[in-house]
Design a protein around this nucleic acid. Sequence first.
RNA 1: GCGCCGUUGGUGAAGUGGUUAACACGCUAGUUUGUGGCACUAGUAUGCGUGAGUUCGAUUCUCACACGACGCCCCA
Length: 456
Amino acid sequence: MIQRQKGCNDLYGREAKIWKYVDTVIDAMMEKYNYSYIRTPIIEATELFHRGIGDTTDIVTKESYDFEDKGGRRITLRPEGTAGVVRSYIENKMYGDPNQPVKVYYNGTMYRYERPQSGRDRELTQFGMEVLGSDDPLSDAEVISLAVNIYKMLGLKEIKVNINSLGDTESRLAYREALIEYFKPHIQDFCEDCVERLEKNPLRILDCKVDCDNPILKQAPKTLEYLNEASRDRFEKVQEYLDIMQIPYEINPNIVRGLDYYNHTVFEIEAKVEGFGSNNVLGGGGRYNGLVQQLDGPETPCVGFACGLGRLVKALELEEVKLPIVDGVDLFLLYVNEDEKKYAAYLAQELRLAGFIVETEYTGRGLKGQFKQADRLNARFTCVLNSEDLNNNEVKIKDNRTKEEEIISLDVLIYYLDEKLNASLEEDEDCNCGCDDHDCEGEHECHCGHCHSHNE
RNA sequence: GCGCCGUUGGUGAAGUGGUUAACACGCUAGUUUGUGGCACUAGUAUGCGUGAGUUCGAUUCUCACACGACGCCCCA
């Protein structure tokens, strides 16, 4: 049997509905902030990630899908979204657009050649946004608020925003040196990995899991102490705007982000969900003022954010967030003989074109089996087509909610269904939050985005 | 790249070096109910991840590989 590739998943059934729904929420919120959708290719030239991500990390050599195509071109499956967007920004000369800054969002698959584990697959889906061409701290705050609002709209309750500032290049380099100086005399007390990290990537020592309780680590110099005045002012502005937007956040000096194109604001958003372990970081981002230039574009200040859909959906599941997912059909048509079946085919066509969700039988089940199937599909109405009734231009229809059954003329079937279905929509109005419990009366908070009644 | 555990029917899952692989759910058919949702009866794996080895004989032991889970490294 041919199996799917390691670390890749098939998405179908209820899970697929959840993902589609999450997509609609993302689209809706992005629209509110006036971000335009951008789609860039999954395959890019390998150099894009080599240069863009920085040569100090070994991402390219070890953890990306690289190959040569038939023409001998070095190709990489994109491991993240930002580099492609920046490439597109430059290539399409978006910096020349009078409408600045350029605000875009993406939502697509990324590929990382790594060993799968909890919350980490080889093929993953991420959405994210980038603001290109603004150095205003308001943009930093806005990106954070946008991310937070998407999570809120989906119904996640406990989210935490951690922010930090790495400062400009000058501050950052000074800090790096200071860290190395600080750790060097004590490094023998740290784990093997940290010894390794001292020269390679000293910032990462700060969130080492093994040495996190080491007092020397706790007293290590903080990024914020090494900010020059301009960087410090900038960071304070970001906080001020967040305060004004009433976005709660915490300053966490250990947030450093892995990649070296970041500067100034960096942040991570985590879900505080039971059972998530160390994978509770839903997404992160920050400012990357040097990247466009590194990729041969004009000097352009940028800020962005990215979030893994997989972890987000997992968080929604763990928090048992109720989502307004439509499940079930309006009408199931049952039949016994061939004539009735033909009529079912005809009627299904008519009713579907009229806007109803209609199902019927395709596998040769008996009447009993068809009823069971209708139940499984959560059919609101069932209709047993019977030759005799049909000859009288009538049909017997049962409302499975009220258990009422009546015989009506085929001519009024559409109006009948329309009226009944609309009536129940209005009934649901008191709690349109999508939960299955129609008597909930809004005892839980509703974040469905369709109704705002419960929260206010 | 490293480590640990796992892989039995549509699903959950028990189990053994040797003729018929437990049980439950589901599904299908039938009985009954004024046409289903309850109950009862019956049916439902050429087979225990793949390949090789040990053995008279392996689903059960050994090895390799694949995949899954989790952790390390790394983290976009």
